[in-house]
Design a binder for these strands. Structure first.
Length: 201
DNA sequence: CATGGGATTGACT
DNA sequence: GTCAATCCCATGC
């Protein structure tokens, strides 16, 4: 991860909370580097195993039409949480990337549950661990992340993201095209940890 | 102001 | 494999 911290030239130490500089980079790099990091909210923890990148320059991104009311958060400071409502049913969690003023974010698509699993089961009303966080709508439900967290900070707010844990080896990455979209489907902006059983379908 | 679609999921055939 | 749920918001009149 060389060069990922333009302010002091130092990559995040293992286990340390990711700072603004981590997010203030090209969104595709941020999406790739988030694989293997830990997402934490109110005692629930999970390893990020699947992400997708979105950028205002391509039409699948909500920011493609500029800073409309819905997409406003996408243009906020890097490291801001963008939470929006999808299909009238689900809240989807994104990490805003690139410098402030650029509309770009990483969609968190799947987690491997690490702690607070019992609470996840209760919120999800499901037992199997591989079905707790294996999709963008599932993981927000499992963690209890709602629309009220839109605009909050991942750097010093209630939702935190931490660098790969000490002793955790670099994940084997798989790159593919994004799913569930109708535009710019050719871009290989989806990243996942190969062979992990907690991926979305 | 009215309309239609969507970065999904779970239940069902 | 198919399909409804359900609501914000972008778009168009």
């Amino acid at each position: 991860m060389a060069g990922c911290d333009p302010q002091d030239g130092r990559p995040p130490a293992p286990g340390e909370r990711l700072a603004t500089a981590f997010y203030a980079r090209p969104v595709v790099e941020v999406a790739r580097d988030l694989i293997g990091c830990t997402l934490v909210y109110q005692g629930a923890r999970g390893l990020i195993v699947e992400t997708e990148a979105y950028h205002q320059k391509e039409p699948a991104c909500h920011a493609f039409n500029g800073p409309t009311p819905r997409a406003q958060t996408l243009f906020a400071a890097p490291g801001t949480a963008y939470v929006y409502f999808s299909y009238g049913v689900h809240a989807l969690l994104n990490a805003v990337a690139e410098p402030e003023g650029v509309g770009a974010a990483v969609l968190i698509r799947a987690l491997q549950p690490v702690a607070g699993v019992q609470a996840m089961r209760e919120r999800r009303k499901r037992d199997r661990e591989t079905e707790l966080c294996s999709g963008p709508g599932k993981l927000t439900q499992a963690l209890g992340v709602g629309l009220g967290l839109n605009g909050s900070s991942l750097v010093d707010g209630p939702i935190g993201v931490f660098a790969r844990p000490v002793g955790e080896s670099a994940p084997l990455l798989k790159t593919s095209t994004r799913v569930g979209i109708t535009k710019a489907t050719e871009l290989e902006w989806r990243f996942s940890q190969a062979e992990n059983p907690h991926l979305s379908r």
